[in-house]
Design a protein around this nucleic acid. Structure first.
Lengths: 212, 212
DNA sequence: TTCAAATACCGGATTTTTCCGGTGTTTATT
DNA sequence: AATAAACACCGGAAAAATCCGGTATTTGAA
């Protein structure tokens, strides 16, 4: 019996191509394809037989990688989820692993290695590629394991601060005193561990707290 | 006779999958695959019969999309180049079209539409997808058509400025006076049309002058 | 050889940002 | 009823960034 695979990726061309490729592997078949997390969950609900492994991209519209992984872990605990992403930054990897992924594969993996990885995940429950194994330990040592929690006002301020505006301009846009703005700035500097507005803006982008 | 395709993309899994897909199209065959621009050029030089169309990703290590397109336009004028990217921001599209691409396709295109696009490029020399046609005119109206040309020192400074460092720290890293640094800052503010360091950093990222 | 562009630098003023240590209200939770 | 967290705000000072108008050398192209 073939190993059943599900895929969620918003790049349609990649999704269909990859599906083709996997189908060409001897022991695998693709049972569900989706362009985002929500579509995946809907299609899953309609299936009688669930996939063994679901490949999930980190960045997707409507419902992103981490959210999708969490949902699957909750509703289909028997299904193994594997992150498949081109991003290899700490935050992407961490957010997926934290959500409950069994492996983190990069899109520039070679097809043969990819097949091997899928087989290993099916058999052992995990896969130790260069990236996930080596970096994972380092990541666990680091402080940024705790998720950064921002309040609503902080989020609004942060988005506005990622711009060419002065704090004075931001204050008037938010109908607040400059001193209040300064409070949010202070608080965000601490949470993001930076010393300057530029650093804050860049960290915010890296951590996907704002989008460019 | 089949239409010969070349592909350059640094995501190996995508590259091989796409190659598979194209091979499955009735009228197409893949004659060259490469993980970056330089590899593509090397492999091209070794061929007797050149591809009709080469698909090129925007972001690649070693030699990126625009540079590769320029080289091909120069050395193989009979070969049509097509950008194939997931990025649909103005700067990516512009830089590829300016380099000489005949079309700009997004990776979230549907395989059938993709096949149609390739056929159209082969027959008419171009393809009008939603993105390229609609946005292209708008792009041409805009000011940012002029490429932003930075000097070497400006580039080095800009990369360092996209950080949590102070100018003083940057100055010492570059073994320059703070006043010299201030000169580069001034010049970059003009070229990027911003009023603050944060604005500068964000513009730099948007315009792909620095990578996060 | 002359000209433009890139490089490196300075004084001095102004604005913005950053930092410090505070106050007080509202709102939800225990 | 007590506590915590989020929200909104202040004075004052120090540091950093921004702006202005300069100079001088080098280097390659016209």
């Amino acid at each position: 019996m073939k190993i059943r695979i599900g895929i969620a990726d918003d790049q349609q061309l990649f999704l269909r191509s990859l599906s083709n490729l996997i189908t060409s592997f001897k022991d695998f078949e693709v049972v569900v394809e989706a362009l985002n997390g929500l579509e995946l969950l809907k299609k899953l609900a309609a299936l009688n037989v669930y996939p063994d492994i679901i490949l999930i991209d980190v960045q997707m519209p409507v419902m992103d990688g981490p959210a999708t992984v969490k949902e699957i872990a909750l509703n289909y605990p028997a299904v193994t989820t594997v992150a498949l992403s081109m991003k290899e930054d700490d935050y992407s990897i961490l957010s997926m692993l934290r959500a409950g992924c069994s492996a983190y594969l990069l899109k520039d993996i070679h097809p043969q290695e990819f097949e091997r990885a899928l087989t290993e995940v099916k058999n052992t429950g995990y896969y130790n590629g260069d990236v996930s194994s080596v970096n994972y330990r380092r990541l666990l040592r680091r402080q940024d394991i705790e998720e950064i929690k921002l309040t609503e006002r902080e989020k609004t301020f942060l988005k506005l601060a990622c711009s060419d505006f002065t704090y004075k301009e931001i204050a008037s846009k938010m109908f607040l005193s400059e001193k209040t703005i300064d409070g949010y700035r202070e608080s965000l500097f601490q949470k993001l561990n930076v010393k300057s507005r530029t650093g804050m803006a860049l960290e915010a982008i890296k951590k996907n707290l704002v989008t460019l």
